[in-house]
Each structure stands twice: as C-alpha cells, then as structure tokens.
C-alpha cells in the first residue's frame, strides 16, 4: 500500500466492520439512508402533504370541495391554456428538435455541425426563465427588434395582426426556444443507437431508404420520440419564471395562478392552492408515467 499511509491508519477498525460481503444487508442499507432521508424530507413529504391538503378544508376535515373548485370556469380555462401552450410547444419542439438532430447526426453534414449543435443545445435548453423572457421582449415585444424592423422597413405592424408576446402564440414561440434544444439533447442518444448495419442489412435485402425509415428506424425510435415529447410537455407545464417575467400575472395559466395564489396576490384560499398543485402533479405525472413506460419499452428492444 504505497499511497497515503495517513488515510489508512485511522481506518482499519471501520473497514473491518464494513467489509464483510456476507454480512446481513442491514449495513448495506445504511449506505443509502442519507439519500432516502433527503428525498423523503425535501421531495416526497412536501408533495404528499399538498396532496392530502387538497382533500381537506380549512379545519382539516375531509372534503372534495377543493377539487370541485378546480372545475370552475376560470380555473378550468387556466388548465386548458396551460395544456395548449405545453402541448403546442412540446409537439413543435419535439418535431423540430427531432429533425434538427436527425439532420446533424445522419444528414451527412460537415463534422463540426454536430458538436456545435450539442453545445448550443446545452446552453439554450438551460437558457430558460427570466433572461429568456427579456430576450424575447427585446425581439418580439412592442419595442422589439423584429417588431421595429418590420414596422420601419416592411411597413408591417406585427401587433395589428393581433399578435402579442403575451398571447398563446407568443408564449409558445418563447417556450420553443428551450424546448427544441431540449429535444435535441434527449433524443440524440436514441438516434445514435440506430446502427449502421441495420441500414445496410435492409439495403442488402432490397429495402429502399424509405423502407428503412418506415419499417426499421421509426419503429425503433418512436418510443423515444413520443417519450421525449411527453417530457417536454411536463417541462412546459410546470414552468413559471418565463411566463411570469413575460406577462406578469396577466396570463391565466396554472403555474402563474398558483404562484399568485401562494404569494397571496389574488385570492387566498390555501386548500384551493393545494388542489391546484395536485392538478399539476396529476397532469405532469401522467405524461411522465407515459415517458417512463415508453422508455422502458424502447430499452427492452435493444440488444
């Protein structure tokens, strides 16, 4: 044992205890206690207490009243707008991100494109939140560069068409900025998993390029594609900062409603807040359950 005797000297008794491979697993479990304790305290219990709160009234008695209030028109419409924005940005981001990744990986483009796209995707997918909303205000806001350029040079008033950065389209366009690169990042491993020999085997058996995509590549990829899209959906559905900085409390989407609710800006009904949170978990949970299920299917297929 030539390296660092000092770290050895104080350890033997401890090592002697931890070492036996055949010892009852109690000691083994000790190693993961900190992690599970942390997860319990800062992830699971807080969520669970909200879920329980959703079914209680202010005095702690069981009630379905909070859940019923979710079906108020104004709240329902908030869920609906959230759903629309999330779905639109997930579908758009999923499709465009997939095409970009395919083009960069399999499109026979120059070699430097791929690492550049990957690095940029890493940056852009994390460039969410408040700075992103500033960037889009500077671009498509009333005084934004594109808006001004269009007005001055193309004599086209973007805002006269009813467009607003605060609208469904504006928000979707903004979300796409991080959704597309996120898709590129998470779908790339799956595309890399397509082996060159599959295409060659297909060709030598008489299959055209179209046949390859239709019968082999897409069936292999689709669980990853759909799963990644579901993840994008959850990602957009829970996003607060971008929308809040962009629109303040003026846009009626669920995360903002909940934010305002917690801050006590608008209405103040704790238990309704819990129900709102529960609704969000249900929506994102369903889409992520879909993701996990599809991913395990995709992995099962791999040799």
């Amino acid at each position: 044992m030539p390296t660092s005797p000092d770290s050895v000297t104080h350890c033997p008794p401890e090592a002697g205890q931890a070492r036996p491979r055949l010892a009852p697993s109690a000691l083994n479990w000790l190693g993961v206690v900190p992690f599970f304790l942390f997860a319990l305290l800062f992830l699971i219990l807080p969520t669970a207490t909200l879920m329980i709160g959703a079914f209680q009234d202010a005095n702690g008695h069981f009630t379905l009243g909070n859940i019923a209030k979710l079906f108020d028109d104004s709240i329902l419409s908030a869920y609906w707008i959230s759903f629309e924005v999330s779905a639109a940005s997930a579908l758009g981001g999923g499709l465009i991100g997939l095409l970009l990744a395919l083009a960069a990986i399999q499109g026979g483009l120059p070699g430097w494109i791929r690492p550049t796209l990957m690095t940029f995707s890493g940056v852009a997918s994390n460039f969410a939140g408040i700075p992103l909303s500033f960037a889009f205000l500077s671009t498509l806001g009333r005084m934004g560069l594109v808006t001004v350029l269009l007005r001055n040079y193309a004599d086209f008033d973007l805002y006269s068409t009813g467009f607003s950065i605060l609208s469904f389209i504006g928000l979707t366009l903004t979300y796409l900025y991080f959704q597309i690169p996120l898709m590129v990042l998470i779908v790339t491993p799956a595309i890399d998993g397509l082996r060159a020999e599959w295409r060659e085997a297909c060709e030598s058996l008489g299959g055209s390029s179209l046949a390859y995509w239709w019968h082999i590549a897409l069936p292999i990829l689709w669980p990853s594609i759909l799963g990644s899209t579901l993840l994008l959906f959850a990602n957009a559905f829970g996003a607060v900062a971008t929308a809040y900085a962009l629109t303040g409390s003026s846009l009626n989407i669920v995360p903002i409603l909940l934010y305002a609710q917690i801050r006590g800006d608008v209405l103040h009904d704790q238990n309704l807040g819990y129900a709102l949170a529960l609704g969000m978990i249900v929506v994102t949970g369903l889409s992520n359950a879909g993701y996990i299920w599809l991913r395990s299917r995709a992995e099962r297929g791999r040799e």
């Binding site: 082996r195 020999e197 599959w198 060659e200 085997a201 297909c202 030598s204 019968h215 082999i216 069936p219 292999i220 297929g301 791999r302 040799e303």
Partner: peptide, 11 residues
C-alpha cells in the same frame, strides 16, 4: 450479407 454483429432488426 450476414454481419459479424448479426444486425437483426430489434423491433
């Protein structure tokens, strides 16, 4: 052609 790595279609 028979490939060294089989190249069976996994789907």
């Amino acid at each position: 052609m028979v490939f060294q790595s089989y190249a069976l279609f996994p789907n």
